[in-house]
């Protein structure tokens, strides 16, 4: 038990936060913001495996999020599927797609990889925007309510607990993955890819694996998003949204699962807080992004954690 507590300290902190947050919630709008923050956090926890641990960038992850959302919307509405089946189909489809594209493009490095992932995202978003008979075009479409074993999630409160649970599960999965042999191989890969290859690690294999996993995380969150909002339009998988996900990951802290969650929460809450001074919103947002990266290039959580540790040690 103690070992579990030690190993999953972050998970326990997060669980406590999720349990306590509703005390400060006054209405459904607050729940709505928290739910969206939680959904973003699931995407970012997955994306951070790719960026923080495998050292690969993706400027196209919103596309996987969007594909998951559209899979759920189309399959439940047009074809009358059960929402869980639609979600599963979306995750499987996105996984296969990610696998197919990952092999060739993960050979690319740095900005070239950024370009390739960005390109894939743009292509997918154009297809969804154009094939209006299936997707509803620029105005999008809506999804049926989400239900599990006969319980339909309608109230914001029930959604909060659902997303909170899903977020905890995602964090638990990601933590386990990092502490597994795969995680160790990944870290070797981030440090020095050539070195890793020399000592016999099949680097491409691991990169592809982690790319697929992070894409499936995004698809999962996208499905939930589609049922919750419940309107799905091409704007949720644009280039800007992809950038937002990366910003959340880097802002909170690369290679930090808890950092991903913190980054996602802050960057989701911030625009809502700034909404009342909308003329200055982009200026403040831009300044915060620049400031954090200049003064805390490792991101919020790792920098603060380091400071705390230094204080603890005499």
């Amino acid at each position: 038990m103690k070992a579990f507590a030690q190993r999953h300290r972050g998970l326990l902190i997060l669980a406590a936060c999720i349990a306590l947050l509703p005390l400060g919630v006054q209405n459904d709008y607050h729940y709505d913001v928290l739910i969206n923050a939680g959904l973003n956090a699931i995407v970012v926890v997955g994306l951070n495996l790719l960026i923080g641990y495998a050292g690969q960038i993706s400027l196209g992850h919103a596309a996987f999020f969007g594909l998951g959302a559209y899979a759920s919307a189309i399959l439940t509405t047009t074809y009358g599927w059960h929402s869980l089946a639609a979600m599963g189909a979306g995750m499987a489809g996105v996984g296969v797609l990610a696998y197919v594209v990952a092999r060739p493009i993960l050979r690319l490095k740095g900005h070239y990889l950024a370009m390739a992932t960005l390109g894939i995202g743009v292509i997918i978003s154009i297809v969804l925007n154009t094939e209006a008979q299936v997707t509803g075009g620029p105005d999008g479409m809506s999804a049926e309510p989400f239900s599990v074993f006969g319980f339909a999630f309608q109230s914001e409160k029930s959604w909060y607990w659902l997303v909170g649970g899903c977020l905890l599960a995602s964090v638990w999965l990601a933590t386990n993955l990092i502490n597994s042999p795969i995680g160790r191989a990944l870290r070797a890969l981030h440090g020095a890819e050539v070195g890793a290859r020399v000592v016999g690690i099949d680097t491409t294999h691991y990169k592809v694996l982690i790319f697929v996993i992070s894409a499936v995380f995004a698809s999962f969150a996208g499905s939930l998003f589609a049922h919750h909002t419940p309107t799905v339009t091409p704007s949720i998988l644009g280039f800007i949204k992809s950038v937002e996900f990366v910003v959340m990951a880097v802002f909170g802290g690369m290679a930090s699962v808890l950092g991903s969650v913190v980054g996602a929460f802050i960057m989701t809450l911030l625009p809502n807080v700034l909404a009342s001074i909308e003329d200055f919103e982009p200026i403040i947002l831009g300044a915060i992004m620049m400031g954090t990266m200049i003064f805390m290039p490792k991101g919020l959580v790792p920098t603060i954690a380091k400071k705390l540790r230094r204080k603890e040690a005499p």
């Binding site: 459904d28 709008y29 969206n36 105005d139 999008g140 309107t231």
Partner: peptide, 10 residues
Amino acid sequence: PDKAATFAKR
């Protein structure tokens, strides 16, 4: 649209 939905709730 997704932001509009959130703002409508707000």
